[in-house]
Design a protein around this nucleic acid. Structure first.
Lengths: 113, 113
DNA sequence: TCATAATATGCGCTTATCCGAATAAGTTTA
DNA sequence: TAAACTTATTCGGATAAGCGCATATTATGA
């Protein structure tokens, strides 16, 4: 247990980073925000995003593998839902950080009267 | 402005994802947690992490470019500090999500009385 | 200015990620 | 079982991220 502690926390840190890398894509962020409004089937998401179905499925797989979304079979379709509402809280915090700091430097904001 | 709106929000989403991808590395997560305790010079971080100095510098650059940390020259050294405490709140939320959901599936937890 | 200390960057390499296109796999109804 | 529908996976090529190593930059002090 003495020897396990460091490698365990290393492993936890890696999993922590893995969650972040699941968030590191604009489409996946939008998927999470969409699912925060309620469960959706793959087809509904495909239509809503106007993206190829394999693309949506692959993004959902990334999120599912890391436990951020939950897949439930409903007949021949699969319904996806958000695994934890705190994901949205975290994303909102990061967006606030963006607004208050990074945004100003990255985009030329045109001040209108 | 009608035509700019979608591309602007796309750009914001990309920046949002960029912040997340800055978090998508165990070393950078530890750097942020360390800086949340107070500012550190590159050398202090290098010693504390036991990692090569160029590695630390490159990670800090990644964080700095995205506005997550702030660099201040102090004589011949550069002091880094956390740009926004909400980053830690967000990381803590994600770690809580990890604890409550993913961890159980990823690591064999040995239940000891 | 020269030497030294602290930090940053460039280069070559390996590894990971993303996308499109095609295809496979599971489910329902006939 | 066959056909239709929904979802998942695989492959190949392009792009980006990571690391170790060497070196460049900036600042201090003699």
């Amino acid at each position: 247990m003495d020897a396990l502690s460091p490698s365990l926390s290393q492993e936890v840190n890696q999993l922590h980073a893995d969650i972040c890398s699941a968030l590191a894509d604009p489409t996946r962020i939008l998927l999470l925000y969409t699912l925060s409004e309620g469960p959706r089937t793959v087809n509904e998401l495909t239509v809503e995003f106007g993206a190829p179905q394999p693309t949506i499925s692959r993004h959902l797989k990334t999120l599912r593998e890391r436990g951020l979304v939950i897949a439930t079979r409903k007949g021949q379709m699969v319904e996806y839902s958000l695994a934890d509402k705190r994901l949205i809280q975290a994303l909102d915090l990061l967006r606030a950080v963006l607004r208050d700091g990074v945004l100003r430097r990255a985009i030329v904001v045109q001040e209108v009267d």
